[in-house]
């Protein structure tokens, strides 16, 4: 599903975020990308949806070399994945249902399909009853679930979560990750960048630890810090 081959990334200000990184993630996997702030977790995800381009090396998503993709095909690449952010990035002037439907508007989905898909996505995150609320009327955990519903509404095969629990309390964080696990069980590949040790330890999933922009540990059923 995802391949990083000898990837390096240096930002224009000179910061080297990723250094000669190699990583393979298979279809249907649930992977935690862990490490302290500034180790390149977010940069790793950003390269997948071409928010940033690698300085060297190759990033392949579902058989497509992301860096070599012509500009007009970038939207098509992004339609194959859902992205969840720490700060939710909901549209404050749209209702919950409109926020979730936003992805489908972009795709030109018919009204009937839109209504059905939004309902399915909101039921999955258990917020259908709040479909007509405005985002500001929801708690942080609920807003993050809306963000997940928006990422999922188009049934993408890949879900990227960049610190999705960063702004949430421990119990809500666990709920969110359980939700992501449920989504993963339905066949969606989930890649989650986090520095939430408690969650990583409790889930016993594949853990890829980064330090200075490179993989220092990759364990199939790992914990946040194995003490090595």
């Amino acid at each position: 599903m995802i391949k990083y081959e000898n990837v390096s990334l240096q930002y224009p200000n000179g910061t080297r975020a990723i250094n000669n990184l190699d990583l393979h993630i298979g279809k249907g996997e649930f992977v935690f990308i862990v490490g302290p702030t500034g180790t390149g977790k977010s940069s790793l995800l950003k390269m997948l949806y071409r928010e940033v381009l690698p300085t060297s090396g190759k990033v392949v998503v579902a058989g497509r070399d992301v860096a070599r993709l012509p500009g007009r095909q970038v939207p098509l690449l992004r339609r194959t994945m859902g992205v969840i952010f720490q700060d939710y990035r909901l549209l404050p002037e749209k209702t919950v249902a409109e926020n979730v439907a936003f992805t489908l508007e972009v795709l030109g989905t018919s009204r009937r399909t839109k209504v059905r898909k939004v309902r399915i996505a909101l039921e999955l995150v258990d917020l259908w009853h709040k479909a007509h609320c405005m985002p500001e009327e929801l708690s942080g955990g609920e807003q993050q679930r809306i963000c997940i519903a928006r990422a999922l509404v188009n049934s993408p095969p890949l879900l990227l979560a960049d610190e999705p629990t960063g702004n949430l309390d421990p119990s809500t964080s666990l709920d969110i990750v359980k939700l992501l696990e449920a989504i993963n069980r339905r066949g969606t590949t989930v890649v989650m960048a986090t520095h939430n040790q408690r969650i990583v330890d409790s889930m016993q999933k594949r853990v890829v630890a980064l330090a200075n922009g490179t993989v220092v540990r990759d364990v199939a059923r790992g914990v946040y810090d194995d003490g090595s």
Binding site: R78, V83, V106
Partner: peptide, 16 residues
């Protein structure tokens, strides 16, 4: 601008 960003992230073309 946030809307534009989100539009692009969910796969909107520049023309959209």
């Amino acid at each position: 601008r946030h809307e534009i960003r989100i539009m692009q992230l969910v796969g909107a073309t520049n023309w959209f």
